[in-house]
Design a protein around this nucleic acid. Structure first.
Length: 832
RNA sequence: GCCCAGGUGGCGGAACGGUUUACGCGCACGACUCAAAAUCGUGUGGUCUAACGACCAUGUGGGUUCAAAUCCCACCCUGGGUACCA
């Protein structure tokens, strides 16, 4: 037997698999299974996160393949994005060069993992043949009014000089560079994802299998609320102020009105004597960054405008204020102040000495005043509200008041969403050019389909100057208007990278199609994806956008399904050895390449799969690598024990162990419980190690079950046991070449083309059963009985009663009750 | 604040009404070795006991049950998401 040296066998098999095209598939064959892992951004190197995503997906894909399914497991690169451009600015390398080099490196690293990808279907998003279809989709969206040009307050990163979507702002900071994000009014391209809000809400009991955390996270983000819009007349002015509320039952408690500083009526409302103060407040509020606004979270500030409006419910005059705790972009940008039932309004009223009226109380007869924050109630009984007094809210009062408001004509029911339209314009170079031409005569003109793709020009100045880099490519910008043939300019912005990755899994199926976005026939057969592995951080971004694109594709008759993935699996995170997130600046990064060199890819694959549940987060602990490494060593050593047919016959106990393990491993993989699947294999290994000889059948079954986890080691060992010279000679290349040419052609030579073992229930039962004997809830003895008397309660009871250890606790006592759970436990109750 | 997930040995974790601590790491002892590493074997929750054994242990406090880590109620702590959303 040779020694187990991973570095000698792993590259050998990787090469062989590639040469024989082992993992390529024919999409026209039946029994489809689409196994998808989030494709990587080509940042330069594979990190542990990739091992998690792709390792898990690969284990699953390999298992399904062995189970006889036609598994499609593609890979590609999400290649547009800021890091490429930053590298260009910093080091003078063109983003394209930088990206291509990284892709080359990373493909090598993917191979070193032993991944079973179908590279023949690779998708790289910065390839014009891919992004031309981004442009094509954008133009379809434009036609349908889903893509539109709008001026709006957006998140702006002053460092990256670009707009960010809400999802790209993390605690008030840019998710790319970490600088504080400010609010800025910019003209933008938006996607009307809000039109799809209702369709994107998850039902309580979905038919597809996505984690509850993702579903709830998305629903909260969409943030549907059912309220009412109420109009307030302004004293001495024509205009009206609209507010949105979900608590209309508090209308009689409204004592003031608050507008966001950005509200369009603000300038009209400010009376001359308040102008200086109010103008200053408004200006300052708009300058504040999100971080600054948040740091002042606790204290509310505002200014009085000098104007009054009328509460339509009771005709009372109430003052109009401006305050930055009101968000301009939510609802109507104005809020009715109900200090008696809203904590923020209460704090504001206290601070500025505004009137506080109690409209909700603990009981219908409670007439006490509101003194402290504890008296502020959102639910209870309506008081001081005319004809509505005594009703309970929200139970009976809310709908009655809504009805009344609608009848009286100052209120209208409205549904609101927290979800905003998606701003997709980015003032960056390395992205999909927006296929639009701006013409002074014709306005916004779409680039005709036949002129797609609009390719990125190569010669551009990348340094941020306040205008998009593409604007520096003068020759590229200048273009004839497709309508009037006059002088016109190209749009110089690019699409948000999330646009690219919202639909890549469709293109995987037909990546070389130059006539259409994809063949409907292929997609119809293969979508939805059967299982999608990825990171929890994509709950509110990528996975939600993809669902939106799927709905849009359905609307333009490209596909017929509502959801693109039947099952979503979130993976966890490997932290650095210091239990902190791995980052270069922290210097706690574990480099997978180095670990592979030391222990081999199979060991790392098992480490990642074994030491935590797949969705857990925990640190990389270097000593722990020895567990998986020793495990593979022992599996390797076991080949010495493989016996000839006669002396290796399996006993009942052996067969039970084997079938138990087959069952456990199969079920655990299906449920993405890789850690316990491996534990089961370790238990079986411990059992096999204790034996003198093991049957060839046993060893082969063991290797098959281990194959998805350790593809290289098992491939090597498979060749050893399959060759006739078991345990005498090693399976060097000489042996391999001796393999018949025919078997090489049919792929049947490889362990990864074998059938997955099946467990047979008839071996699972034990001859003897151990039953715990409990007295007053405590286990006192273990009774071992034959299988044949397990269902004879009286006999078991008698035997249990007579157990020596049990007797000690039963002697002289009266048994009040006996409970027997067949084959598991017998419980005597003697005390009170 | 709100929503979600979770608190089990020295550590990562199993079990998710029925023999708590599978599997692995670490540690201790033993074998091999001139020696070390590697490897193999044995042991390993706590307290008390010479020992047999007994008692106590799944964040805390209650409850349901013959039986609770598991179900119910209250509270504490940790991680993640989200946030003046009216």
């Amino acid at each position: 037997m040779k020694k187990y040296i991973p570095s000698q066998i792993e590259p050998k098999w990787q090469k062989k698999w590639e040469e024989t095209d082992l993992y390529s598939i024919d999409l026209t064959k039946p029994d489809k299974f689409y196994c998808l892992a989030e494709f990587a951004y080509p940042s330069g190197d594979l990190h542990m996160g990739h091992w998690f995503t792709f390792g898990g997906a690969d284990i699953f894909a390999r298992t399904k393949r062995m189970q006889g399914l036609n598994v499609f497991f593609p890979n590609g690169f999400d290649a547009f994005g800021l890091p490429a451009e930053n590298a260009a600015i910093k080091r003078g390398i063109h983003p394209k060069t930088w990206t291509n080099e990284n892709i080359k490196t990373m493909k090598k690293q993917f191979a070193s993992m032993g991944g079973s990808y179908e590279w023949g279907h690779q998708v790289i998003t910065c390839d014009p043949e891919y992004y031309r279809w981004n442009q094509w989709i954008f133009l379809r969206m434009l036609k349908r009014g889903i893509a539109y040009r709008g001026k709006a307050l957006v998140n702006w990163c002053p460092f990256d000089q670009t707009v960010l979507a809400d999802e790209q702002v993390v605690v008030g900071q840019c998710d790319r560079c970490g600088n504080a994000v400010i609010q800025k009014e910019v003209e933008q391209w938006f996607l009307k994802i809000t039109q799809y809000a209702e369709r994107l809400i998850w039902p309580d009991k979905p038919t597809i299998n996505w984690p509850q955390a993702v579903r709830e996270g998305q629903n909260n983000w969409i943030g549907k609320s059912e309220g009412i819009e109420i109009e307030f007349r302004i004293k001495n002015l024509e205009s009206r102020i609209k507010v949105y509320t979900v608590f209309p039952e508090t209308i009689f408690g409204v004592t003031f009105m608050v507008l966001a500083p950005e509200h369009p009526l603000v300038s009209q409302l400010i009376k001359p004597e308040y102008k200086i103060e109010a103008d200053q407040y408004t200006k300052e509020a708009q300058k504040k960054s999100a971080v600054e606004r948040m740091s002042e979270e606790k204290h509310k500030t505002g200014v009085f405008t000098g104007s009054y409006c009328i509460n339509p419910a009771n005709g009372k005059e109430i003052p109009v204020w401006i305050a930055d705790y009101v968000i301009a972009s939510y609802g109507t940008g104005a809020v009715m102040g109900v200090p008696g039932s809203d904590h923020r309004d209460f704090e504001f009223a206290k601070k500025y000495g505004l009137e506080i009226i109690k409209v909700i109380s603990k009981s219908a007869s409670d007439k006490s005043e509101i003194v402290t924050e504890n008296d502020v109630l959102e639910a209870g009984f309506i008081v001081n509200s005319g004809q509505f007094d005594g009703l309970e809210t929200p139970l009976s009062a809310r709908d009655k008041i809504k009805d009344w408001m609608e009848e009286e004509g100052f209120g209208k029911r409205k549904v609101n969403y927290h979800l905003h339209d998606w701003s997709v314009s980015r003032q960056r170079y390395w992205g999909t050019p927006i296929p639009i031409i701006h013409c002074d005569k014709c306005g916004i003109v779409p680039v005709p389909d036949e002129d797609l793709p609009v390719e990125l020009p190569a010669d551009v100045d990348f340094t941020p100057k306040g205008e998009p880099p593409l604007a520096t490519a003068k020759a590229w910008v200048a273009v004839k208007c497709p309508k009037c043939k006059g002088e016109a300019r190209r749009d110089t912005e690019t699409l948000d990278g999330f646009f690219d990755n919202s639909w890549y899994f469709f293109r995987y199926l037909d990546p070389k199609n130059s006539k259409e976005i994809f063949s409907k026939k292929i997609v119809e057969k293969w979508i939805p994806v059967d299982i999608y592995f990825g990171g929890a951080e994509h709950t509110l971004g990528h996975t939600l956008y993809s669902r939106f694109f799927t709905e849009f594709f359905k609307d333009i008759d490209l596909i017929g399904v509502d959801e693109y993935a039947l099952r979503r699996i979130n993976h966890g995170i490997v932290l650095g050895t210091d239990n902190e997130k791995m980052s270069k600046s922290r210097g706690n990064v574990v480099d997978p390449d180095k670990e592979v060199k030391k222990y081999g890819a199979d060991t790392i694959r098992i480490y990642v799969a074994f030491f935590m549940p797949y969705d857990a987060t925990g640190p990389w602990v270097p000593e722990r690598i020895w567990g998986p490494y020793r495990f593979l060593q022992r599996v390797w050593g076991l080949q010495e024990k493989v016996a000839t047919a006669e002396d290796g016959r399996q006993k009942t106990e052996d067969l039970r162990m084997m079938h138990k393990t087959i069952k456990k491993v199969t079920e655990d993989i299906e449920q993405i419980k890789f850690n316990t699947a491996i534990a089961a294999l370790m238990e079986w290994l411990n059992h096999l190690s204790r034996k003198e000889k093991i049957a060839k059948e046993e060893y082969k079954t063991f290797l098959l079950l281990l194959a998805p986890f350790a593809p290289h080691t098992t491939e090597e060992l498979w060749q050893v046991v399959e060759s006739s010279v078991v345990s005498r000679q090693s399976s060097d290349n000489a042996n391999l070449k001796a393999d018949s040419e025919a078997s090489l052609k049919t792929d049947s030579w490889s362990i990864h083309k074998q059938s997955w073992p099946k467990s047979d229930n008839k071996y699972l039962e034990n001859e003897e059963v151990s039953i715990a004997v409990q007295i007053d809830g405590k286990v006192r003895d273990i009774l071992v009985i034959g299988k044949d008397i397990v269902n004879n309660k009286e006999v078991v009871e008698k035997m249990a009663y007579e157990c020596k250890k049990a007797q000690k606790f039963l002697e002289g006592k009266f048994v009040k009750k006996t409970v027997y759970i067949q084959g598991k436990i017998i419980s005597f109750v003697v005390s009170n």
